[in-house]
Amino acid sequence: MTAAATHSADIRPAFPGMKVTQARVIKSEWTKFRSLRSTKIILLVSIILTIGVSALICAVTASHWTRLEPGDRASFNAVASSLNGILISQLAVGVLGVLLISGEYATGMIRASLTAAPKRLPVLWGKIAVFAGVVGTASIVSTFVSFFLGQALLTGHNLRVGISSPGALRMVIAAGVYLLLVGIIGMALGCLLRNTAAGISSLVALFFVIPPILGLLPKSWSDKIGPYLPANAGEAFWGHPEGSHLSPWVGLAVLCAWTAVAVALAAVRLTRYDA
């Protein structure tokens, strides 16, 4: 037996140029993404919810405009109304994020993924990159469609505003970015918990349960903590400025901080623990 001849450095791969690179892992993750029907269906559902619910809200508002309370009319914001669908579609995007990783744990696929790329982190970055590319694009396109469709439905009572009106472009893009960040937080939860049910539950808790519960606390408390929850910081970013405690850019910074912490924890979980 010759020890030198079997050292890893001396093994010539059977295929020229064989090597793991981040770009190749991204390509592989794209293959995985497009070859699952469930992911495509959930993505489609999120697009339909964003556009459909926003359109519904605009249509109902327009048809009931004359019967609305003066207060409601005063607080009405045509841009925000045409984006409100994301309050529901964020759940679909978040679930998609959870599933993309927890699904691999549920089926055992993760072990194949991590033996193919044993440094592990490239797999997480690859998944996030594909998600950002596909879901980010789909989200921003659907918030633009939402906006224009919503404004068309609001034409009747002269409520409609243009994309060049103050804050409109920022809000439309921000709504798409918000959806993407919710999805990435979902991915991090899937990676941390390695379980679909647990991942979705904690996502729902973070975005849908904790915010209203916080409202039950003394006002001095809820006012201090509330704005920094991801859902509220997100709404400061994409919503109408008057409704929020934080400025849009502070909102974005807070939301990015949540995302970064979640992803960092997920990276630690992925690399430091047995697969």
Binding site: F15, M18, V20, V25, S28, E29, T31, A117
Partner: peptide, 8 residues
């Protein structure tokens, strides 16, 4: 998908 990671 597995092959693509290693450039196979």
């Amino acid at each position: 998908a597995l092959a693509q990671t290693n450039g196979i």
